[in-house]
Structure formats: structure tokens, C-alpha cells
Design a protein around this nucleic acid. Structure first.
Lengths: 220, 220
DNA sequence: GTCTATACAACGATAGAC
DNA sequence: GTCTATCGTTGTATAGAC
């Protein structure tokens, strides 16, 4: 059986799943477990033993499939970046500014709600100085921001928004939305909620959207 | 000699330095080294060996002064919280909203510039689920926000600003300012600068302040 | 191809020397 | 009081069994 009809998620990597059924299944389990462990313990704090335990495999077996701990980490991070690129691409000059920016903020915040572990892994990778993601940041993300900067400059020239620094505009939106994943423990402690609820996220969306749109002079 | 005339920094803890001159000096060196290592490697990634090397002491000697790695970490974190509490307390009902919020944003961003390591340690502590800082978040920080929420509500009732959610207002400002310390590697990569410059921080202050003030309807 | 017993380095911590 | 030789444990990784 060459083709796969496996309904299981492949862990988020962009390549088509390769190898036999057992290999696919075990690699997927390892990646899923690793996302959890890396998010909770950080790169150094994560152990292949804990990843193996959650994945339901022997520790040594994890090393059979991935070789090194860093290889697991790289695949987890690659999946996260892949998700990021697919989810947040649509801000074009033809869009209505208020609609496009509102949708972007909402998407980012829903991503913080649905995939907090991914966001936390991304965050710790950046805080560590981005040893793995540096090329991505310097090339892909930089190009993305430069492209969007032109859109924002055009909108400003058309009088549809203020002429704010596009770079810092995005830094602010990224920070304000990702904080609900990365700093969830702080936010829930301050709110007095055990866990963040859907209503908290809706209020976050409303507040961030309102301040950003009005603050940039974007007409609703 | 009971009293100390030591000009060296004690590392940021709030207790008066105790013990002999050697003890003081070595503890200070360990704390300073530990701040660096914890910020760069995270709690688990940090090793007492590296802390000792940077501090110029033998590894075992570090354990003599602090006993455990966690004890070092607790003292580092305590110093950071102490700094936070001393630096960002002044937003009162008598203040002019624009002046007070502008000053707060500026202070937070200058803190990101001057003490990025402290900010990163705080960030990773929160991302880890705040195992050490949870009580601080649930009590002290929560009380602080509740007090400031009353100030913001008063300002809103007086028509001096919009009625935005005070909690999410602060989450946004914290995120937007701390990101310049925590995510400096991402920001510098996107900007194409090797390191963040003073001009970058000034532009960040200008952008964040402008968007927040206008976005909340605070008259300048 | 899949999995595990084993190796070996590095960790935090301490008992004991100075 | 100060410092270091040494220990037990746990980490990643591999050689070899199935």
C-alpha cells in the first residue's frame, strides 16, 4: 500500500507524509507530544523521555525516528511557521482597511486561543535569539512586512488611515494578540479566571480592534 | 565592620545586603551572572556551571552561597519584580490622562531598552505558567490593575477618555512595550538592523503612544 | 524496518578539606 | 567562613537485538 489514507494529522510539516504506516503514526505522535513538552518546558527543559512517555513509546525509539532532540524541535517549529504563513497572508491594497485589519487581529487572536502551545514555542524560540528561525525572520517575514508596508503607505496616501510606522504597527498587533497565548497565565491571574474563556478573547478582540482602528485613523 | 560602604550593586533584591564583604561580593556576582544565563537559556537551560564561570567562581562555590539553582532563580526573579514595582506605579486620578499614559508607555519601553534580560526572564517565567510568580500575579498585580481600572473608569466618566476595558488596555500596553525586549531578535531582523538602536525605541514610543492615546480618545 | 539495552557525558548537589 | 573533590542521577545518543 503506497498511498496513505491515514486520517491522522501529520503534525503540521509541509512535506507529504512518507514512509510506512507505523512510521507515519509514530512520527506524528512524537511531534504532537513534543509540541506539548517544548511549550511547557522550553527547549532545554524538554526531555526526550517525557516526549516518549506522552507519545507512548520507549525513549530510545524516539531517537530512532528523529535522531536528535534538535531534529524534533526543528520539525515542530517548521510546522508552526507553516501554519503562520498559511493563516495570516491576506492584507492587500484592494481591501477595505477596517475590514482587513479587523480580520487580521481577529485571526491572530483566535490563533492564540486555538494554538497557544504553538505560539509559546514560537515565543521562546524568539526570546532565545531565534537560533532556528533567524533565516525565516530575516527573509520571509521581513519581505512580508515590507509588502504590507507598501499597502499601509498607499492607504495613508489615500487618506484612509494615518501615516503610522508600518513596522511598529505590526509589532504592536503581533504583541497585543500573541500575549493572550504566551502570557495567558498572567492574564488569567489578573482577571481572576482559572482559564481564559471565550468571552475573554471576544473582549480582547473588541478592545484591541477598537484601539488600533481608531488609533490609526481607520474609518469603520 | 558592621555597616557596609560597598559601592557595588547588590543585584536588585530588596533586603539590605548581609554577611561579610566576600559573601556580598560573590552573591552579587552570582546574581548578575545568573540574570544573564537565565535570560539567554531559560530556567532549565541555565546551568550552575555557566553561572559560576561568568561569575568567576567554581561551580561548587555557587552552591555554597545559594544551595540550589532554584534559590538563585528565585532571587533573580524577586529582584526583577522589585524593579517593576518601583518603576511603574504612578497613574493616579489627579494626573492628566495623556501625560500619565504617555509617561507610562515611555517608562515601560525604556525599561525594555535598559533591562532586556530582566524582561526576558519575566517573560519566560510567565510562559512557563508562572510557577514562582503566580502569587504575585494573583494578588499584587491584580490589585494594581484593579486600582488603575478605577482611575480609568473615572477618566471615562469625566469624558476624558473612551470607556475601554481597563484590563485589556493594560495587557495591550504591556505586550506592546515588552515585545521590544522579549522579541528584540525578531524586531531587529524585520527592521534589518543588527541590534535595536535608540532611534528604533524612539519610533516605537512615538507609534505606541500615538495609537494608544488616539485609540482611547485621550486628548493630548 | 522497528525497537531496546547500554554507553557516556553533564547535571545539580554535598561531604569534607582548608 | 570559604572553597573544592566527589557523588548519584539523569540527560542525549548509539550499538546492537529482534
Amino acid at each position: 500500500m503506497v498511498h496513505s489514507f491515514d486520517i491522522e494529522d501529520d503534525g503540521g510539516a509541509d512535506e507529504a507524509p512518507q514512509g510506512g504506516r507505523i512510521r507515519q503514526r509514530n512520527k506524528a505522535r512524537i511531534i504532537a507530544a513534543a509540541e506539548k513538552v517544548f511549550a511547557e518546558r522550553g527547549y532545554d527543559g524538554a526531555t526526550t523521555a517525557e516526549i516518549a512517555e506522552i507519545a507512548g513509546l520507549a525513549k530510545s525509539n524516539v531517537h530512532y525516528y528523529f535522531g536528535t532532540k534538535e531534529a524534533i524541535y526543528r520539525e515542530v517549529v517548521a510546522g508552526i511557521v507553516d501554519l503562520w504563513l498559511k493563516a495570516f497572508g491576506e492584507i492587500t491594497a484592494e481591501d477595505d482597511p477596517a475590514t482587513a485589519i479587523s480580520a487580521y487581529i481577529r485571526q491572530k487572536l483566535l490563533y492564540s486561543r486555538k494554538r497557544p502551545l504553538a505560539s509559546r514555542i514560537f515565543a521562546t524560540e524568539i526570546i532565545r535569539g531565534a537560533p532556528i528561525l533567524r533565516p525565516f525572520l530575516e527573509v520571509d517575514l521581513r519581505d512580508w512586512v515590507e509588502a504590507k508596508a507598501k499597502v499601509l503607505a498607499l492607504w495613508a496616501a489615500q487618506g484612509r488611515m494615518d501615516a503610522v510606522s508600518p513596522h511598529h504597527f505590526f509589532f504592536m498587533i503581533w504583541a497585543a494578540t500573541q500575549t493572550y497565548a504566551d502570557f495567558a497565565s498572567q492574564i488569567s491571574a489578573v482577571l481572576g479566571h482559572k482559564r481564559l474563556r471565550e468571552a475573554d478573547f471576544e473582549q480582547a478582540i473588541a478592545t484591541v480592534t477598537a484601539i488600533v482602528l481608531k488609533g490609526c485613523g481607520i474609518k469603520a
